[in-house]
Design a binder for these strands. Structure first.
Length: 482
RNA sequence: CGGGGCGUAGCGCAGCCAGGUAGCGCACUUGAAUGGGGUUCAAGUGGUCGGAGGUUCAAAUCCUCUCGCCCCGACCA
C-alpha cells in the first residue's frame, strides 16, 4: 500500500491533489475563474482549524473584531512598499449605486491599512496599548494562476493586527504568534514545520521582518503555512498612529500582523495524503471515527445496526466526532474505501461476530492493512479506547511526517550538489548562506528554488556559503515552493 | 501577455486524417441476486458534438472567424 514518497513528476502530484480535493468533496471550482467553493466537508475542517487557533489566540490575550471589506485606494498608497507589493493583484471597485465613485475602493488584499487608520483614531496614550485584535475574514488577491486551497482569488483567513508602545514588545509579539502557529501546526495538524525569518526578497510588503512556518509537502516542496510580521513603525508613521508615552513624548506605535489562511487545509491534504486519498489528523478531522456496520442477512442487520447506534451514541456522548454509516445499499468494502479516501482517522467495524462477542474492530487510517487493526475491542470502555486510539493516531501521523521531513532535509557543500538534490529527491536543502539578493534571484532563475527561511534554531553557526564561498554565520533553507 | 494543448452526456474519453442515423467507460435510475476490503447480471435515463458563418445532396468530421478552458512562464498566503 501507499508508502509516501517524493513524487518526482510534479504534474502527477498536482493531478493527485486536484483529484483528491474534488473526489472527497472538500472543495470545487466555481464558475468564476480562480474562486473556490468550499464544500461542507472542507468547511468543517476549516472550522476545526479556526476553533483550535481561536483557543490559542484567546490564551495569548487577543480578541476578535471585524473591519470593512472595502478600503479606499488612497489608504494603500500611504505605505510605499505596501502598495508596490499589492498593486498588481488588487480587485478595484469603481462604481456603486449606478454611479462612478469619487475614489476607487479596493477589495481588501489584507487589512493593515484600514486597521492602521482605525488604530490612529483609537490610540492616544500608552495606556491604550497594546491593542491585540484578530479578525476572521475573506480577502481577495487577483492571482494569475490558482489552485484549490493553495492559491485562490478569494480566500478565508485570520489576520491579527497588534499595536505596541515599544519595539521590543512588538518583536516579542511577532515571535510569540510565530510560536502559536508552529504549535498549532505540530500539535493540531500533525505537520512539523520549520520556523524562520524570510529573506529580504520574500518578506511581506511593508514589513521590517517577516517570519514564517514552512511545511514540507508530499512531493518535497515547501509550503509557507503561516506568517508573522514585525512591521516596525512603518504603518504607525503611514497612518499616524501616535501616542504619548510614559515620558510624555509623542511616539509612533509599533505594529505587527500575522495570518493563517485556508491554505492550511491544502497543507493538511498534501502533508499527510497518500495513494488512498486524504489522511486527516484526529484533532482536526470532521469525523474522527466512522462506525461501519457489516451484515449478510436481513436478520443480522437489525442487531448489527443496534449495536452500531449504541457505540456511536456512546462515543458522541464522550465528545468524539463520530459518523454511523447506515447506507444499506453499499457493501462494507465500499464503505471502507470510501472513508479511507475521505481521511477518517479511525474506522470501527461491527459485524455479527462482533455482536456475539460484544466487541468491535478498530482500523487505523495511518497504518494500512491488517497491521493497523485491533480485534476484539470490548464495547464496555469503547469511548476511552477510542480516545486513546485517536491520540495514538495523532502522534503516529506527526511522527511519520517528521520522519519524512527529516529524511528529506539535506545539506550540500556546493552549487553542483545543490542542483543534483533539486533534480533528484528534492526536499529542503539546509546551507550556510552568505549571498546577496541578486545571488538569490539567480539561483531561483536557474533552479526554481528559493530561500524559504533562515531557521530560527540554526543561526550563528559558522560556515562557508555553498554558493559564494564567503564565510557566514547564517543558515538558509532552500526549496521549491508552492 | 508569450509558448504548448484541448473543447463530443455529470466526469474521463473514442470517433475527425479518408463527410453518410452520436459511441465507450464511470456515475445516475429500476429490478434481482449479493454483502468481514472498491459486488454481479439485466434493463434504462441522459448529448443544439463550445458558438457563428461557409462548402456539400449530406458536416462532430472539411474551410473561415470567434469564444472558452487546461498546462508551462512572469505574480503569490
Amino acid at each position: 500500500m501507499a508508502e509516501k514518497g517524493v513524487t518526482p513528476r510534479s504534474e502527477d502530484y498536482s493531478r493527485w491533489y486536484t483529484d483528491v480535493v474534488q473526489k472527497t468533496e472538500l472543495a470545487d471550482y466555481s464558475p468564476v475563474k480562480g474562486c473556490m467553493v468550499i464544500r461542507p466537508y472542507g468547511y468543517t475542517l476549516w472550522e476545526n482549524v479556526q476553533a483550535a487557533l481561536d483557543r490559542r489566540f484567546k490564551e495569548t490575550g487577543h480578541v476578535n473584531a471585524y473591519f470593512p471589506l472595502f478600503i479606499p485606494m488612497s489608504f494603500l498608497q500611504k505605505e510605499a512598499e505596501h502598495v508596490k507589493g499589492f498593486a498588481p493583484e488588487l480587485a478595484v471597485v469603481t462604481h456603486g449605486g449606478g454611479k462612478e465613485l469619487d475614489e476607487p475602493l479596493v477589495v481588501r488584499p489584507t487589512s493593515e491599512t484600514i486597521i492602521g487608520y482605525m488604530y490612529s483614531q483609537w490610540i492616544r496614550s500608552y495606556r491604550d496599548l497594546p491593542v491585540l485584535i484578530n479578525q476572521w475574514a475573506n480577502v481577495v488577491r487577483w492571482e494569475m494562476r490558482t489552485r484549490l486551497f493553495l492559491r485562490t482569488t478569494e480566500f478565508l483567513w485570520q489576520e491579527g493586527h497588534t499595536a505596541h508602545a515599544t519595539e521590543q514588545e512588538a518583536v516579542e509579539e511577532t515571535l510569540r504568534m510565530l510560536d502559536v502557529y508552529a504549535d498549532f501546526a505540530i500539535n493540531e495538524a500533525a505537520i512539523p514545520v520549520m520556523r524562520g525569518k524570510k529573506s529580504e526578497r520574500e518578506k511581506f510588503a511593508g514589513a521590517v521582518d517577516s517570519y514564517t512556518i514552512e511545511a514540507m509537502m508530499g512531493n518535497g516542496w515547501a509550503l509557507q503555512s503561516a506568517t508573522s510580521h514585525f512591521l516596525g513603525q512603518n504603518f504607525g508613521r503611514a497612518f499616524d498612529i501616535k501616542f504619548l508615552n510614559q515620558s510624555n513624548e509623542l511616539d509612533y506605535a509599533w505594529t505587527t500582523s500575522w495570518g493563517l489562511s485556508t491554505r492550511m487545509v491544502g497543507a493538511i491534504i498534501m502533508a499527510h495524503g497518500d495513494d488512498q486519498g486524504l489522511m486527516l489528523p484526529p484533532r482536526l478531522a470532521p469525523f474522527q471515527a466512522v462506525v461501519v456496520p457489516i451484515w449478510r442477512k436481513d436478520a443480522e442487520q437489525a442487531a448489527v445496526l443496534e449495536m452500531g447506534r449504541r457505540v456511536a451514541d456512546t462515543l458522541k456522548a464522550a465528545g468524539v466526532r463520530v459518523k454511523l454509516d447506515t447506507r444499506d445499499e453499499l457493501s462494507a468494502g465500499f464503505k471502507f474505501n470510501d472513508w479511507e479516501m475521505r481521511g477518517v482517522p479511525l474506522r470501527i467495524e461491527i459485524g455479527p461476530r462482533d455482536v456475539e462477542q460484544n466487541a468491535v474492530v478498530f482500523a487505523r487510517r495511518d497504518v494500512p492493512g491488517k497491521e493497523g487493526k485491533t480485534f476484539g475491542v470490548p464495547v464496555d470502555g469503547v469511548a476511552q479506547a477510542t480516545r486513546d486510539m485517536l491520540d495514538t493516531i495523532q502522534a503516529g501521523m506527526l511522527a511519520r511526517a517528521t520522519k519524512f521531513q527529516v529524511a528529506n532535509t539535506r545539506t550540500v557543500r556546493n552549487y553542483d550538489e545543490f542542483k543534483q538534490v533539486l533534480e533528484g529527491p528534492g526536499g529542503f536543502i539546509r546551507v550556510p548562506w552568505g549571498g546577496t539578493g541578486e545571488d538569490e534571484d539567480r539561483i531561483k532563475e536557474e533552479t526554481k528554488a528559493t530561500i524559504r527561511c533562515f531557521p530560527v534554531e540554526h543561526q550563528g553557526e559558522e560556515g562557508v556559503c555553498f554558493y559564494t564561498g564567503n564565510k557566514t554565520d547564517r543558515v538558509a533553507i532552500f526549496a521549491r515552493a508552492y
